[in-house]
Design a protein around this nucleic acid. Sequence first.
RNA 1: UCCUCGGUAGCUCAAUGGUAGAGCAUGCGGCUGUUAACCGCAGGGUUGUAGGUUCGAGUCCUACCCGGGGAGCCA
Length: 499
Amino acid sequence: MKAVTIDTLAPHIGQRVTIRGWIHNRRAAKGLVFLVVRDGTGLVQCVVNQKDAEPDTWLTAESLTQESAVAIAGEVVADARQVGGVEMQVTRLELIHKAVDYPITPKAHGVEFLMERRHLWLRSRHQWAIMRIRNRIIMSIHHFFQEQGFLQMDAPILTENAVEGTSTLFGIDYFGQPAYLTQSGQLHGEVMAMAFNKIYTFGPTFRAEKSKTRRHLTEFWMIEPEMAFYDLDMNMELAEDLLCRIAQDALKDSSVELEVLGRKVSALQSVRKPFVRISYTDAVDLLNSDKTADLLSTHESTLRTEQIELEKERAHNSSVYGQAKKWKKRRLDARAIEINARLDEITEVLRNIPVWRSSARSFEWGGDFGGSDETLLSWHFDRPVIVHRYPAAVKAFYMKRDPEDDRLALGMDVLAPEGFGEIIGGGQRADDLAFLEAQIEKHQLPREAFEWYLDLRRYGSVPHSGFGLGLERTVSWICGLDHVRETIPFPRMLGRLSP
RNA sequence: UCCUCGGUAGCUCAAUGGUAGAGCAUGCGGCUGUUAACCGCAGGGUUGUAGGUUCGAGUCCUACCCGGGGAGCCA
């Protein structure tokens, strides 16, 4: 009998097939056992009917536990009630391995509990959807660049020089010589662009920042295109095209996964060219403006209304809890968890709003935007916004100056909508030898370590640009997740190195 | 490093300073179409740790440990 995967069951309606997988959930009625089986490609309900099944199969079905491994033979039948439209009528069931006391039960769990069991958590439905979308995004990125003649090339992970100070780098011992894990492949990317014209790197990046927020990992994956003969405008257009492609591919190919996650797709449908492009100087004006203050006030009153309604609901639920039936209690418990989590979130935001308001109102030209400023900017628009031409003082030494205003660097950041924050940072690179030499001296960087980089400006220097896209933040945005820790199979962050 | 919230059964959470409870999970029983199935019964606790206040502390105070998310920094 043919062994198939769950995602290919539909064409086999009316046929007998075998599937192999793990028990995701089990329900029983008299003479019937309903098994929800998972094989990594999808879920399917398998029905064991005592009067049809062999005696061994029935006994096995009755005693199956969550995550036990099984091989199941039966007929594929159409059933409109099921997700995917099919279920299996089981004729034979073989137990491959019996799992005992699987810790992640079909109910709500806390973050710490799940993170300690990340190796098992990955089996659950939400994680299935997220990892498949991550894969979809990775493939979109490769297709996008490959179709346009970019060469995928790899920057080294072990590096000798600290590009922007050693405080955010993980240091290691390289046979007695200090070395670091890379925090960006950009400088090597520039080398490769001068050799191959248009390239992109796709690799891991490490930051020893002691950040404990929903946007930070210490190890994350970054995509860094670097293009010879590209100026800032061409660079921004490339970033726009890339993000549009990612959003559209996700809508086209990951609708099931997005639905599992409850992602509002309208937010992704509005990701279309042209994005909003705003200069840093205009962005500062916008932050200072009444428009931003009004936005905050509106948001604040909306939250206060929601807070009052939730508190009312909580009081009402707790007053009826005593008389409630068991199933109703269970529902009330689940709702209470939701209400409390949302109330915590609202309390946190309401506490922050006065700080956000004053920091936006009094933001002075010359500083770099904080997380709250970026969030506020992105709330003004329904699609990604590109902020360009930052003060040179807050940007990296290798950025080209704006020929029209020497105080500005030709840098750009792309902020994802809905407050997901910065997902792209990049710009046009300095291509003048003397300027770069002066910058290296000004930033007190070790000149010797940059000689190879300076060679690019000695031998056929041309205008060139590039940017870095953070994969996990992008996945987080597309999936509508409130934290990046679920966007990578094994997150590495402050206080988390296992499993 | 700072700010802030939290730690109660295997899990998720309740509990005016006054006898520690519920749901899920587990075990047993019931139900022939369940969708986190449902219904009944049972077992399950050094309330993070160490002190203190009190007739009495899960609850109040102090210190420490662990975790959440925010600031700084950043993708």
